[in-house]
């Protein structure tokens, strides 16, 4: 596999470190169901055999965390976004221009 880092361009797999599922969101500690929420967030996974949103880190490059959408059934990479842009969009924060965040 080769991943196109939005900052650095297309790079070989060995420049990146894998983290895991990007579809889970860190829960609110103040919620009444916080314990169950954190358990689900940390341990339970859909793990379907299809497109998978997942976190990768450009460890031997720019240190950007990426949300990669990849079909885990055939390793086709469908999309790559900076994780902070995804996170900001989820939190409805303004996305600053590249390099300024």
């Amino acid at each position: 596999m080769r991943i196109t880092c939005p900052c650095c361009g297309e790079r070989a797999l060995d420049e990146f470190a894998y983290y895991g599922d990007a579809s889970v969101k860190r829960p609110d500690i103040a919620s009444p169901t916080a314990m169950a929420d954190f358990v689900a967030y940390s341990f339970d996974r859909v793990n379907a055999a299809g497109p998978h949103r997942e976190l990768w880190y450009h460890s031997a490059g720019c240190h950007l965390w990426l949300v990669v959408t990849r079909n885990v059934a055939n390793h086709e990479i469908l999309n790559v976004e900076p994780a902070r842009d995804v996170a900001r969009a989820t939190q409805q924060l303004p996305t600053p221009g590249r390099g300024s965040a």
Binding site: W65, A87, Q91, L93
Partner: peptide, 18 residues
Amino acid sequence: AVKVSQHMELCHQWLWPE
């Protein structure tokens, strides 16, 4: 060293980009 650096970047870029 590497693990912590990566972890803190994740905390910032993914958990608390604000």
